[in-house]
């Protein structure tokens, strides 16, 4: 068996009706994995959106995924940020924690270590904002579990290649 690899793929698409459904339908219809998917318009003038999708599969499947994405009519360009040299990947999460006394102090202390910011606070709760690699977010969230974790909202990863060159 070929090894399973995790790839982050950026897809530039025309921001037209149904384009996201096309991309998602492709993944579900062909049985590919989606670990996370984010989308937002990046060029309002030419109505271009960027989809970042994190997926996994054997090298042959990853090649298929890229070829299948590329042949969708509204797709301008795709870029495999895992294959194409160094890239940076970030995700943002909002994490709600409820607690009092020592647990509250401990939550604040850990947030500080992770450079998470409290963006909302009540007598017995915090909402932390944290960004970083998906792994860093996982670690932070895991630590919050025993300190009164209530709710998590994550954006999914966005990524971009290092260096001066554009996609």
């Amino acid at each position: 068996m070929e090894p399973i690899e995790r790839h982050t793929i950026a897809v530039l698409v025309d921001n037209e009706a149904g384009v996201l459904a096309r991309v998602i339908g492709l993944f579900s219809g062909r049985g590919y994995n989606i670990e996370s998917l984010t989308v937002a318009e990046v060029d309002p003038e030419s109505a271009i959106s960027r989809i970042t999708v994190v997926t996994s599969g054997t090298p042959m499947i990853i090649e298929q995924i890229k070829a299948q994405l590329d042949r969708l009519v509204p797709v301008h360009r795709i870029s495999d940020l895992t294959d194409g040299g160094a890239s940076v990947e970030r995700e943002l999460a909002l994490v709600k924690v409820r607690g009092s006394g020592n647990k509250r102090v401990e939550a604040l202390r850990i947030a500080d270590i992770f450079r998470a910011r409290a963006i909302d606070s009540t007598n017995n709760s915090f909402v932390f904002e944290i960004s970083g690699s998906p792994e860093k977010l996982d670690a932070f969230i895991n630590l919050m579990r025993s300190l009164g974790l209530v709710e998590i909202s994550r954006t999914g990863a966005v990524a971009i290649a290092r260096g001066a060159k554009g996609i």
Partner: peptide, 11 residues
């Protein structure tokens, strides 16, 4: 003509 036909079933 379709890159997705290549290496799909057979390398």
């Amino acid at each position: 003509i379709d890159p997705s036909s290549i290496n799909k079933n057979v390398a």
